[in-house]
Design a binder for these strands. Structure first.
Lengths: 236, 236
DNA sequence: TCCTAAGCGAGAACACTGTTCTTGTCAAGT
DNA sequence: ACTTGACAAGAACAGTGTTCTCGCTTAGGA
């Protein structure tokens, strides 16, 4: 009862270390062989443990994979935030915005399998846990901040977009409007979501190997794409 | 030696039927349980065969999956072509173009797992066979035709895009320029590839379940997206 | 017409996998 | 000092992909 609050008990500390070690080994396996080939027994072998011992820490293979997915989400969100913070001093709105998709791509290209954990084929029956909305929101926030800043400073170009905004469309994107873009015209909100969609799409197509014989220099194409997106959103 | 050329031998005919049956059962399994859960033994059970018997028709689980992937590519290409043909009479360039991404989305939403076979996480070590470039090219051709037709008729709007075209970028997209867009400015080629990227991205995000709590009406958002893309490309 | 070789399917076997249950051990907390 | 709880190991079970051997059937050439 009189347990020290700050320092966890030795039991808890070693348990956390063990959990982290299992996750690290599992992540390494996923990184080099893919999520489909993740084997509980093989990570147990790497840790010189009996397979059954892992069940003290994870409910099974699916739970371990879920933890890896959550870790990937968190890592991606951290990367996006880091990039946004590092670009904070940048004078140009567009450059501050560009820094984030650039960082996301770099992260994805270096960890194709972990990118796949987030944006690849989901396992049917597996429901994305509620916890994914939080890291997702952090990424979104990192990409949104420069846009809102430009808007408030009156530096956001406001030309009409090609598609007109129907009621169904306004309704469809209300969650995004409310959470990220208060006081922003719906057309701009739609453009922002489309930018996010394009960023994910172009990264996925590169990382999943669809650029063979099509795009010879993926980085140059990505750079052009995000600059185009910045222009469409209305950043200088 | 005096074998009838047109009618295949009875052996060959029953072999083809058997192969098709195996593929059909395997596709059904993938459709409802996902590619990861595809089990040779379970399709053998469905067909009342011994597992080893399947090896007369496919080299193993990976070969069977490869065949399913190729079938998905072919089905998607056929769908895109069908939509392009059906819209041939449409007077508006934009409407003719819009018909193809609409058909692709409809196909994907109805077969999320097969969409995942094409655009989801690839199995590491699995190299997309050379045969995928042909169906890929058919989809591209279906989406490109209305653009080229509009160009030749002088109906393609030609405003400058936001990003300027560097030498690296021009170089990066040469395969696409040569194969699909002869005589088209590089900026337009880039916009067309970006449109394809966005179409794949928005469909993948929907089909893979990333629109929860974000886009309440995926179809309305998709419709707005492709209209916006058509405008950006320069179709009316 | 017969005979042979090829194609086919079944069955057993091997090395794996995820998962559960039981057993023993060791270190906390009372 | 004792007891409770967490931990790890081991055995076992069902399931998997794959290989090999064995008969059977049948098509094609003598």
């Amino acid at each position: 009862m009189a347990m020290p609050r700050t320092a966890r008990s030795a039991r808890e500390r070693v348990r956390e270390e063990m959990t982290a070690e299992i996750l690290a080994v599992a992540r390494a396996h996923v990184a080099e062989e893919g999520a489909a080939a993740l084997s509980l027994r093989s990570v147990a072998r790497d840790l010189e443990l009996a397979p059954s011992a892992l069940y003290r820490y994870f409910d099974g293979r699916d739970a371990l994979l879920s933890a890896l997915i959550m870790a990937a989400y968190a890592a991606l969100a951290a990367e996006a935030e880091r990039a946004a913070d590092a670009a904070r001093g940048e004078p140009s709105d567009a450059e501050r915005w560009l820094a984030v998709p650039r960082a996301i791509r770099r992260w994805a290209v270096g960890r194709p399998q972990e990118w796949g954990l987030i944006f690849g084929t989901p396992v049917p029956g597996y429901e994305a846990p509620e916890d994914t909305v939080e890291p997702y929101a952090r990424v979104a926030a990192a990409m949104v901040r420069p846009v809102n800043e430009a808007k408030e400073a009156g530096r956001l170009r406001m030309e009409r977009s090609h598609a007109d905004v129907s009621d169904a469309l306004r309704e469809a994107v209300t969650p995004v409007t409310e959470a990220l873009f208060p006081e922003m015209p719906v057309a701009k909100v739609v453009l922002a979501i489309q930018a996010w969609t394009t960023v994910v799409g172009v990264i996925s197509l590169e990382v999943f190997g669809h650029w063979r014989r099509t795009i010879l220099d993926p980085e140059a194409f990505f750079e052009a794409t995000i600059r185009e997106l910045a222009g469409q959103i209305g950043l200088v």
